[in-house]
Design a protein around this nucleic acid. Structure first.
Lengths: 343, 343
DNA sequence: CACTTCACGCGAACCGGTTCGATAACTGGT
DNA sequence: ACCAGTTATCGAACCGGTTCGCGTGAAGTG
């Protein structure tokens, strides 16, 4: 069931079979048919490893995703799915690689052993040695998120600064004056995660601009942490009337905390943030939020990566996305605001 | 940066380098050190494709997961994560393969082209041609879920029959008499998805045993469908006082539907089902449910698969898991039940 | 001192493809 | 009838590893 066997049965040489399949040289219609018949009979498919060895291409891209220790968020899931789909459209497979504790090891596997033609990096940090490393090697890669110095690199990212600011403005417009910010876990912030930093930045600046009183919190990636965080918020400043969150996994816990504190959303308290649309619609009331376009990001990332693999000298490209805030049901007028149905 | 280059610089033959690395033949301590030094200097790593070609092993397992058209559930996410992690522990990579519309094509990629040494199949159907196909080929694979005739195949599954029955008994014990069942989408049931069928079965039989009045529903994998499904339930029988669901993605919608119908959980209405623990804790009130042990299943699946790859003649093995119901806050006494705090 | 034994290292063949250069069989022009 | 130019095919080399069989020199033995 290898190319030699096909050649033998079709009465031609191995190279002729190869050319008949690839079409890189002319093969007479006669022999092509003869070869095709044998192939169909035997159900032959060329061996991927041999092909990869011969032409230096594995037709596989690596998806370097955060370690399982972190809880995965719905957004990441959607993203992975769309990457796989987009890759299939380009005839690429996707190899998952955990960038765990021992991120060097899996990196060596992917790149050193040439398992993949390129890589997509998730959960970028502002100073990311992985990005620097790949850039130094000239290895085709696309980052999901941008580092502090993204010039000259390929990436697709969300404008977290602008999104967090948009949330602040939305709340300020509604009359909220005391607003909390619920960030990703402290360890991620310390590690320099891009979304956590830029989001915090955008929030802080916009809040200052609007003269809001704010407090910022880090919160674990799970419901229990969310609930606990909300208790802290109300304890620190009971007059807080709204929050902005980047932490999708904590959302359910935040809502529960509000319910237990007897604050009705959106009458007594407004919630907004940056969350995958599908998950914003899962909670009640549905979350007014900047919907993370995970599918679009996955598609873009693959398109860029494939482009880069095909033309190694192409100039760097990127996509910076700024999805609008989808108005749903979790935000309302702030305290002391004259509202249409007030007496 | 290939093995020949290493050999040249170390002043030995290629085979010696190979043996020094694999340890399959003795190499003197002297030359081993010499070789190692060169390798360290150059950062050499053996090419995975070449190695795979030579020894017929790719050290990669395929994860055949449902098409993106379906919405992914949290359980699937946890599962994928744990598979990747467990595979890494066995020194295997994980290749994702969408078993989309054109499932044949990706199957051919994985198996025909020998990209993987074995495969894990998700979302099994009672009559699953993929399983039959792999069994016929003798290709190492482990199914997540069991077909109608699982004898002689390798699988790890959840006892959906028992779990759904346990939910019914739990509700019946609490005094509920009119109970609804919210299944996965109709198209999946028609397609013969194992969990949908066995769950429905277990529910129906247990309900008959306990003499309950039941209605069963199919529901899309998203919040909007969940809400709509709940409206249908209350419309069809307003006296319904509890539901059992297998549909994790619809859970948020079901809760919303209840809230909008003015039914308080668990006072007026009880909700339970089979859901990944992490997601059961996200909703408010937290869901009393049989927690899907996704991580454990991922680990088991990988362990079985690796075992099967290593010893092709080993007798079939499987794991059938029946996690207990975790009592949380979404179920309470049924209507007409004397309760401690009743007047 | 000749004779086995053993540790060590080498060369060649092989895994299954791709690709280059050469050759042979036709074609058409003069 | 001869030469240039196609067109279709073949053989050999190569990609970068692994593995088998053999040769060599040193150590062990009677």
């Amino acid at each position: 069931m290898n190319i030699g066997e096909i050649a033998r049965r079709a009465g031609v040489s191995r190279s002729t079979v190869s050319y008949a399949l690839s079409g890189k040289r002319a093969v007479s219609e006669d022999t092509r048919r003869k070869i095709q018949r044998v192939i169909d009979e035997l159900g032959y498919r060329p061996n991927a490893s041999a092909r990869a060895l011969a032409n230096g291409r594995t037709n596989t891209i690596g998806l370097v995703f955060p370690p399982a220790g972190n809880h995965y968020t719905g957004m990441q899931l959607d993203f992975i799915g769309s990457v796989v789909e987009a890759a299939a459209a380009h005839d690429y497979d996707v190899l998952l690689s955990p960038s765990g504790v021992d991120s060097d090891r899996s990196f060596q596997r992917l790149l050193g052993e040439r398992r993949v033609d390129g890589a997509i990096l998730m959960e970028i940090r502002l100073e990311d040695d992985r990005v620097d490393h790949l850039a130094a090697l000239g290895f085709p890669s696309v980052a999901i998120g941008r580092t502090a110095h993204p010039e000259g690199t390929w990436w697709v990212g969300l404008d977290h600064t602008a999104l967090a600011a948009a949330c602040v403005h939305h709340l300020a417009d509604l009359g909220h004056r005391r607003v909390a910010f619920v960030n990703r876990p402290a360890q991620l912030l310390r590690a320099g995660y891009e979304s956590a930093h830029r989001g915090l930045d955008g929030f802080t600046k916009a809040a200052a601009e609007r003269g809001l009183t704010v407090r910022t919190y880090c919160c674990g990636d799970d419901a229990a942490s969310g609930q606990e965080c909300l208790e802290r918020i109300l304890h620190d400043d009971p007059a807080t009337s709204a929050l902005v969150t980047l932490n999708e996994a904590a959302l359910g816990g935040l809502y529960r905390g509000l319910a237990q504190a007897g604050r009705h959303v959106p009458r007594d308290f407004s919630v907004t943030g940056v969350v995958a649309g599908r998950w914003a619609e899962t909670v009640t009331p549905q979350l007014t939020a900047a919907d993370v376009p995970a599918e679009e990001m996955g598609r873009h990332a693959v398109d860029l990566l494939v482009e880069r693999i095909d033309q190694p000298d192409a100039p760097p490209r990127h996509h910076l996305l700024t999805p609008p805030i989808s108005l749903r049901a979790s935000t309302g007028p702030g305290p002391g605001t004259a509202s249409v149905d007030a007496p």
